[in-house]
Simulated scan of single mutants.
Amino acid sequence: MRALIAVATAATLAVASPLLAATLGDDGLHKTDWMRDTFKDLREDLAEANAEGKRLVIFFEQRGCVYCTKMHEEVFPEPVLSDYIEENYFVVQMNLHGDTEVTDLDGEALSEKAAARKWGILFTPTILFLPEEVPEGQSVSQAAVSVMPGAFALGTTLDMFTWVNEKRYELDGDEDFQRYHARMIQERDNGKTD
């Protein structure tokens, strides 16, 4: 009987509990199950992402970032987004002020904070999306197909991840990200969500 009560209580708590947010790591950055702990040699990360059929994406965050917290507590836990990221992306997290060594796609080894300066990252969160193939000698900032600077609501964030994953940046025509996003707003819930 106690076992049955324990199972029922656990099931009730699981249903009643809100979406789980990311945990904070020792570095003060949010950690999710879909983030990869790599040696931060981005050439190797790109090759591994390609081998898994995923897109390489780099998340810049920093300790105490209220916008990063908002994203990790309110946006990324939504299953429609977290499942999409996990299924389609190889995520490498970087610390805007970090000292961990990173090897850029052009082969240069530098600290996370030096990489942030080199790539023009000014604030957090900033998400850089990479293509599957990068011409030799290009840095991350030169190769990025899109950059998402800042914290956005679920609809905008999902649309950006979808737009990149579907390679809509390569399509000819007039539907850049803003037009794509506007169309998706209209299609989603009759325009009730962003």
Rank of each mutant, 00 (worst) to 15 (best):
V66A: 11
L110C: 14
L158K: 07
N190M: 11
Y169S: 05
E170S: 05
G98W: 04
D104E: 09
T23L: 05
E78Y: 03
L130W: 04
G64F: 00
A115T: 09
E108K: 15
T69L: 11
P135N: 10
M148Y: 03
R188G: 02
F123Y: 12
A153V: 00
R55P: 02
A49I: 05
T100L: 13
V66S: 15
T126V: 13
A49C: 08
A182D: 15
G120H: 12
E73M: 06
V102R: 06
R55A: 11
D104K: 10
L24V: 01
D41S: 07
P79Y: 00
V57S: 08
T12A: 14
A11E: 00
R36Q: 15
E52R: 13
A143C: 06
A151N: 05
T12I: 12
H72P: 02
A6F: 06
D172L: 15
D83T: 10
E52F: 04
Y180A: 12
S139F: 04
A153Q: 09
K167I: 01
A11K: 00
L42Y: 06
D99M: 14
D99T: 15
E170T: 12
A14I: 11
T193Y: 14
R168E: 09
A51G: 14
R36M: 10
L171Q: 12
C65H: 09
K70R: 13
E132M: 08
Q93H: 03
E44F: 04
F177R: 05
A49S: 10
T124N: 04
L56I: 04
T12W: 10
F59M: 12
E175Y: 06
G25P: 01
R183G: 11
L128I: 12
D33V: 06
L96G: 09
E187G: 12
H97F: 15
E166G: 11
D172M: 10
D172N: 13
M1D: 15
V147K: 13
L4Y: 01
E166Y: 03
A3L: 15
N190L: 13
I127M: 14
V92Y: 09
Q138V: 05
E44C: 02
V102P: 10
G25F: 03
M148K: 12
I185D: 02
P77W: 00
E175K: 13
S139D: 08
I127S: 01
F76R: 01
W34H: 13
A8I: 09
E133S: 12
C65E: 07
A49N: 10
A11G: 07
K192E: 13
G173A: 08
E87A: 15
L42M: 09
Y169G: 09
A49G: 06
G25V: 02
G173W: 07
K31H: 08
H181C: 00
E87F: 08
A14H: 13
R36Y: 07
V145Q: 03
V66M: 06
G191A: 08
A3S: 14
I5W: 05
M35H: 01
Q62K: 15
T9M: 12
N50T: 09
T126A: 04
P131Q: 10
Q62N: 14
L171T: 01
A22F: 11
F129M: 07
W163H: 05
F59N: 12
A182F: 13
K113P: 01
K113R: 14
K70P: 00
E44G: 02
A8C: 10
K54Q: 14
P77V: 01
C65D: 05
A8H: 01
T162Q: 09
Y84T: 04
R183W: 11
D106T: 13
P125G: 03
T38P: 06
